[in-house]
Nucleic acid binder design. Structure first.
Length: 289
DNA sequence: GATCCGTGGAC
DNA sequence: TGTCCAAGGAT
């Protein structure tokens, strides 16, 4: 079982790591939590402008907690999965109400926050508070699968296994461990990518188990490709667009116009109401005040 | 564990 | 052009 050449990895990061705004010295825990939630299943490049605008409008959890859900949904824009915006506001409420307005340090407490799961809790503990905890995202899983196990893909995630695997790779020194996690994520994002890994530019190539094995194809189960066209997800997006891009309210007829299949349209609409992304008053549908 | 939940860029 | 996939979380 190969390990990871940490010095080579850290040196590479110093050279080509992106100067993302939330990596600047002095970035607070709330700002880091915000960017981590926004980055869930969303390319980092799309997050940056929204992150800036968001913090300008609501600098901290107290301001966000006082905001109207409608404004929060609008500010979320087209980042996708808008339920995250509602969870973020709920998270701000919990931070204010039960943590005195400060983002908690402990992973277990972070996990209690709405919209904060296994990855985000550890990302905040590590990146915001400098704790030596494994941080496992899709990039880390992929780099470890290749560099350590010699497999082309990570296979299905398993929180327990993945955490244990990364824990064994984590440098003992706290600051090194933090730098390791940032760098290995960046490597997965920039070099050891899912589609066409740029092994020629990889600082781990000479020690990589996958490269050593001749970059064998993945022989595990093919990951199910997520369809989008024609799904409820697409319909929800179209429906929400009507309110998000307009003045926040619309009659039923305006919503009906965006999707012909009444059964699916109603199902999507009901799910939006259930999620609290819309409210209904008679014939009118609105973003939640 | 499987499924659902947006959006858009890269190839 | 259609496929793939992106700093996951909740149920």
């Amino acid at each position: 079982m190969t390990s990871v050449d940490t010095p080579a990895l850290l040196s590479w990061f110093e050279r080509v790591g992106r100067p993302l705004p939330w990596r600047a010295q002095g970035t607070g825990a709330w700002e880091i939590l915000l960017c981590e939630v926004m980055s869930q299943q969303t390319p980092v490049a799309r997050v940056e402008p929204v992150w800036r605008a968001w913090l300008e409008r609501w600098p901290g959890p107290a301001e966000l907690a006082a905001a109207a859900p409608a404004d929060v949904i609008r500010m979320w824009g087209k980042l996708g999965y808008p339920r995250r915006a509602l969870r973020l506001r709920e998270c701000a409420l919990v931070v204010v109400d039960t943590h005195g307005g400060r983002v908690p340090h402990d992973v277990d407490e972070l996990l209690e926050l709405p919209g904060v799961g296994d990855y985000t809790a550890r990302a905040v503990a590590c990146f915001a508070y400098g704790q030596r905890v494994p941080v496992v995202d899709t990039n880390v899983r992929r780099v470890v699968a290749r560099a350590v196990r010699g497999e082309a893909e990570a296979g299905p995630p398993s929180a327990r296994r993945d955490l244990a695997a990364v824990e064994t790779l984590l440098p003992p020194d706290r600051e090194q461990a933090v730098a390791f996690s940032i760098a290995i994520m960046e490597l997965g994002a920039l070099v050891c990518t899912a589609r066409s890994p740029r092994c020629d530019d990889c600082p781990l190539a000479s020690s990589c188990a996958w490269v050593a094995a001749g970059r064998p194809d993945w022989d595990g189960p093919r990951r199910r490709v997520q369809t989008f066209a024609g799904t409820d997800r697409q319909v929800r997006g179209l429906l929400l667009d009507v309110l998000r891009d307009g003045d926040g309210t619309a009659p039923r007829a305006a919503l009906n116009a965006v999707w012909p299949d009444a059964v699916q349209r109603d199902r999507a609409l009901d799910s939006l109401l259930a999620d609290g992304l819309m409210v209904r008053a008679g014939d009118r549908y609105s973003l939640p005040a």
